[in-house]
Amino acid sequence: MKPAPFVHHAPRSVAEAVGVLAQVGPEGKVLAGGQSLIPILNMRLASPAHLVDINQVAGLADVVVTGTEVRIGALVRHAQLEHHDEAYAALPLLRQALVNVAHPVIRNRGTTVGSIAHADAAGEMPAVLALTEGVVEAVSAGGTREIAVADFFEGALETSLGADELVVGVRFRRFAEGTGTAFMERARRHGDYAMAGVAAAVRVEDGVVADARLSFVSVTDVPRTLDVTSAFAGQEPDAVDWSAAADLVAGAIEPDGDIHATAAYRAMLAAELSRLTLAAAAARSVALQQHLSDSEGPAA
């Protein structure tokens, strides 16, 4: 299990990187953390002729938190984002999801942007990007474009990215103040790809559910948001039957079976995890509202 030969490019700037990409076209592959790519190369499931190693590109390793967004560069490692306190305060869902990404050692090297660009339906961070209605920033020799998450993922391991484009960063949109979030998944072993996973965001306002959304891991071809507010709107969170979204969930997912779990089992898991994450997210929202009304302080 050794990779096939390739030409290694080590650009120092985004301009240089996209210059190389423009030149090598579909024969090239971007290497960032490599935690998904290198196993594929080692098994020779892919043999790109050129690797554009962006690890030396300046300016891609920052996490920037604004009032509305968390922006991360293409070289931000999962672990860096996971332990970024300001990012956690702004968008707790990031850490809630990141702790489920493989094992810590993989998170030390793997990049969040890389896992989004890889577009694996079993990836956690694509689901987070979907739920936050985030934006992908892509640069090519021709310029920069922003791709809304809804337009980015096109299928399993497929995105709308051009072969000459480099994702330089993504922006996760922060939820409205007082929104609680939760992320849960089930894998055969701790750290494995999930059989199913669910991210939930719930906002309780004036004592009743005002907004409830889900996104999924491993049970949809393409990460996307499912708005389940209609099942709970106006209900008091303590009295809600959080399984009421089960039909909506069942209608939104299209799980496949594989050697680890059947489609039916994954559907069951998606429903169960939806119930659990919605409840957990709602509880957090209630706590946040409590905190807000107590202190008028910033959302945490």
């Binding site: 490599g34 290198i38 993989i106 090297r109």
Partner: peptide
């Protein structure tokens, strides 16, 4: 393929898989 961890080394003090790095 990065699963077993036998090849783990410290890179700038952080553990990483040396089989998943060039």
């Amino acid at each position: 393929h990065g699963v077993c961890g036998a090849c783990t080394v410290l890179v700038d003090g952080q553990p990483m898989r040396s089989c998943l790095m060039f």
